[in-house]
Simulated assay, not measured.
Amino acid sequence: MIMDIWRSIEKKQFAPVYLLYGTEAFLINETKQMLTKHVLSEEEVDFNLSVFDLEETPIEAALEDVETLPFLGERKLVFLQNAFFLTAEKNKSKVEHDVSRLEAYLADPAPYSIVAIAAPYEKLDDRKKITKELKRKAAVLEAKKLNEQDLRIWLRERAAAAGVQIHEEAISLLIEISGTNLMLLANEMEKLSLYAEEKLIDAQMVEMLVAKSFEQNIFTLIDKILQRKVEPALSIYYELLRQNEEPIKILAVMAGQIRMLYQVKELARQGYGQQKIASVLKVHPYRVKLAMEKAGRFSEKELMRLIYQLAEADYQIKTGQAEKRLAIELILLKMGT
């Protein structure tokens, strides 16, 4: 649905009203930028773009601007931010909204205005008439975390917009290294696109140019340990120390990731699918996919042993029985046996 709306905007097939809701701020901001780019020319932006914060401005006042003819242009674009009246949440704003004015506008929108209503909240209150009307009459974009398929499409289209192609292997590696944060992925794609002299991004280029996050370095460290490859694991650990990462933090993230491997394995054994596991653990489905691939190679007994060893090291460090840097080094050696 997100991709369909974006393609329509690029083709200048605009809806009179857009409803952008959800907690993935990057998608909402991306849609706003696309609308601004395709609805108005650079010269028109100063005259025909309006932004209202509905925590400060009543909806009826904003609609007066919406219904005012554009100046020196065919269209005007109006962003209505923070539409808290669409939710059941309590809001500190003292502004009262006459939502009947918005209902009337939805029944007969101005042909020269495009309105984007942003509600950056996890859920809307579908019991409210205005919410139902908006979902029925507006183009609705739910800004939630993209699933793996949509994430891959988004990366391919982002590459195409930059005039390059990207291999599927490169997409997989990019997501594995950078995770699913759209802002981070967008920055990495921009860097890769600039470097791609042959207009092609491959896995080797991703490996060379994309910086691994702290969490990804820990994930790789654990992967080496699970494969009994102690020396590469120690090399990653020493590099993290050189980057001034705190040993206690390293230990905590290691424990959290191994615990997740155990939980994924146990839930999969109980018959839970990838999406359901992601929902239960409150993580992105792609992380669950990677965890399922790795956890399948090890027994629950092995993973529980690693969790116990990490907990014991944490206790020894916090009770002063072991020096923190050395304690983690020793546990990496022990875990690899």
Rank of each mutant, 00 (worst) to 15 (best):
E239A: 14
L185E: 06
F52R: 00
N181Q: 09
G179N: 09
S193E: 01
Q257K: 13
A252Q: 04
E44D: 07
E103Q: 13
K128R: 13
A143N: 05
M260K: 14
G296Q: 09
E188T: 10
D126L: 10
E197A: 14
A162R: 15
G273C: 10
Q227I: 00
D98Q: 12
S299G: 12
D126R: 11
L251M: 09
L35G: 00
K135E: 09
Q263I: 03
I258H: 05
E176G: 08
I117V: 12
V230C: 11
L192T: 06
A233T: 01
L303F: 02
P247N: 08
V280W: 00
K132H: 10
L151W: 07
A203D: 12
Y18F: 07
L35N: 00
S113H: 00
N91Q: 07
L69V: 12
A327K: 11
G256N: 14
A143E: 03
K294I: 15
P111D: 00
N244R: 13
S178M: 08
P285V: 06
L20T: 09
L86R: 09
S213E: 02
E169K: 15
L102I: 11
A255Y: 14
K129F: 04
E43S: 15
A233V: 02
R242Q: 13
A278S: 10
Y308R: 14
L49C: 05
R259P: 02
K282R: 14
T131C: 13
I5R: 04
Y237C: 04
L173F: 09
D4E: 15
E55C: 12
D46T: 11
A203C: 03
A143F: 08
K249V: 11
G296L: 07
Y105G: 05
Q81A: 07
K135W: 06
R152Q: 12
I175M: 12
G271W: 06
S213T: 15
E96Y: 02
H167K: 11
S41Y: 01
K224E: 11
P247A: 10
L332F: 08
L80S: 10
Y272W: 12
I258A: 06
Y237M: 06
V264Y: 09
N217R: 15
E302K: 14
S299C: 05
M1C: 01
L332P: 02
